[in-house]
Nucleic acid binder design. Structure first.
Lengths: 239, 239
DNA sequence: GAGTACACGATTGTTAACAATTCCTGTCAA
DNA sequence: TTGACAGGAATTGTTAACAATCGTGTACTC
């Protein structure tokens, strides 16, 4: 599964039977970010074991970690289900983002480092490329991850973790309540936010970000029904 | 261990052999908040098993959760140790708090609810009482938890979780780098912050909070050595 | 025909034995 | 005395069998 063909000197060779729980978490996280794993999808232990070629222990550890990040719900004796945020949680997520992201971009616009700017410009390039190629799943994920990268650009790991959690949750919410056209952020809003940061204009950066978040939220239909769900999604395959 | 003596109608009776991992997490969290569990303290599985009267499985789940919250470090094949933040992490924690808490108190001062104000005034009462009785460990914990309650007062569970993590981390940092006198927040700063909120004065609330955080941070001696640690602390006992 | 009770299959939760690694200790040699 | 090395004890990691729970389908009753 993840054997290296040519053991290189100085590098550890991966001889393990499968990925560790960190990789499992990462794969499921990515599937959620790309909206390939819909809310309420059941993740049975046996299924995950064979998908990842791993024993039950690893899977259970991964599930526990995912549930502590709010990505899945762990129901006693019933199993693990991809989290299914309701209206009230959705409001909390946007409220939290509107509280945190404005001061965040303000700070970025004020004290910028070369590394953080490179991170963001590189990301915008990826987004543009994905849009040009019309790769839906990539666009969706990169759209969300732009905001994660804003947090990473501060170099503060606590802010990064928190934003990652909020963005993941947002992805679930958009999948649940969003119409198909607004699954990703409007085309050039990310670019404009970055421009404001590059121009060292905190006020405009903040304003653009707020209206961006408002666009996303107002594009949602909060009265959409819980959506009956196909219970198997073997879409955890590729890296 | 946690049997109820009088089974009440309508309540579930606790018949289990011991607390579940949630309670274990809570107990260790509390011990850290009260600085009874010092950074770098080793938490061996066997020890925790007998302390809580629980099998290894529960303990390991609890440890995994604690590590995902950054309260402990889980070292492969070596065991679990109470997290020991370094200088750089300490800076990140304060930077994150100075980013998040100001807009948080501003919001509280603007849109306050009865429930949230009650939560905060009740807490201040607890703090005062603990100070009057000179109960050191309580003072330390309540001091930190005031900030957690600020977040809870927003009613937003994401903000609450995040602040809780940051406050816990702060407690470890103060334990490591703080001198004994500033283990808790200066006496009346919390009260004044609450007063500003009650007076619907966002500007002053923000200002008081920022200077409060600055007081805490500037009271630290970041060059204190890693502190050799007594490896056993059976101080997880009481509720 | 509708509803209920029961039993079976599938899935999760738990336990205990086993494997692997680390840490400590005691011995020996320089 | 100090260092390295080897052996053993203690601790963590893993696995597999077992127990408990839940969902479903079937038969039975009203």
């Amino acid at each position: 599964m993840s054997f290296k063909s040519q053991p290189n000197a100085g590098e550890d060779v991966d001889i393990s039977a499968g990925p560790d729980e960190g990789l499992i978490v990462e794969r499921i996280y990515k599937a959620v970010m790309e909206q390939r794993l819909a809310p309420n999808t059941k993740l049975s232990e046996a299924r995950l074991c064979e998908t990842f070629g791993v024993g039950r222990m690893r899977v259970r550890r991964a599930l526990l970690l995912l549930s502590s990040q709010g990505i899945i719900d762990l129901q006693s004796n019933r199993g693990a289900y991809v989290a299914c945020p309701d209206k009230s949680e959705a409001n909390d997520v946007f409220a939290a983002r509107m509280l945190i992201e404005p001061p965040l971009v303000r700070q970025l616009a004020q004290e910028r480092s070369e590394a953080s700017l490179a991170l963001l410009t590189d990301h915008i390039a990826l987004e543009d490329a994905a849009r040009k190629e019309n790769e839906r799943t990539q666009i969706i994920r990169l759209s969300g991850e732009f905001h994660t990268k804003l947090a990473q650009a501060t170099g503060n790991k606590f802010i990064s973790r928190m934003m990652r959690e909020l963005v993941t949750r947002t992805s679930l919410i958009v999948g649940l309540f969003g119409s198909s056209q607004n699954a990703s952020c409007p085309d050039h809003e990310h670019t404009n936010i970055l421009k404001a940061i590059l121009a060292r204009d905190p006020d405009q950066a903040e304003e653009l970000l707020l209206s961006h978040l408002n666009h996303i939220q107002s594009g949602l239909n909060m009265d959409a029904r819980p959506q009956p769900q196909d219970d198997l999604a073997i879409i955890l395959g590729s890296a």
